[in-house]
Design a protein around this nucleic acid. Sequence first.
DNA 1: TTGTGTTATATCCCAAAAGATATAACGCAA
DNA 2: TTGCGTTATATCTTTTGGGATATAACACAA
Lengths: 112, 112
Amino acid sequence: MDYKIKSRIWIENKDNVLLGEGRVTLLKAIEETGSLSKAAKSLNLSYKKAWHLMDSVNKSAKKPVTINSIGGKGGGGTTLTDYGKSLITAFDTINKNCWEFLDHQLKQFKDL
Amino acid sequence: MDYKIKSRIWIENKDNVLLGEGRVTLLKAIEETGSLSKAAKSLNLSYKKAWHLMDSVNKSAKKPVTINSIGGKGGGGTTLTDYGKSLITAFDTINKNCWEFLDHQLKQFKDL
DNA sequence: TTGTGTTATATCCCAAAAGATATAACGCAA
DNA sequence: TTGCGTTATATCTTTTGGGATATAACACAA
């Protein structure tokens, strides 16, 4: 018996996607690097894609998730708001709980 | 508070996908129509795509999921094995349980 | 004033996914 | 023997998503 069960969860706000796995890992990388471009590099994804993701996140969130600054010392940067950080932890717990729940449910495939 | 949580689950067997939502709805349509081509039409998807899906399902399953016949009265057809039917119900219950579980978990987003 | 490293955005190009089309094999019925 | 409606494939075309590239705006530091 070696069937595996996998899942993807995401949060929507009036049919715009707010959070998914990719967006959350991007948020974490931003938190670590303090910059969208550095976060993109560290995750091996194009700046364009990262920017579009964050644009979508910020548009569908009810409060600002990041603070973006252009120019200045270091050229600018992107940091998370407290709201953004709380989104990460909320998503992570739900996701982890979901995995555990599904692993438990998988027993229904035991005899198949 | 109108965030919605959505999910997709699927079952894999040694990194081949066995079942997902699309595959299960296809199996159901086959059960109803008795034919892969009719099932594809009823779901508005090309025969090619439907055939590839079923090919992948049967290759990654441990027992046959469908019985396919070519030629004969009506030209042939595809019917589900008992194993195939049990896969559907197992997947559906897990999926439904997952939705309920996640709706419950969504409360973690209540104050955000 | 110039250089630097960001954010922000548009445009072009390619590859991969999906769709459309064509064709063979098959077995029953007429 | 012919026609029919399937399953089973191959091939060609179209569409779409993503990557690469280019450029502007910005604000601080030197």
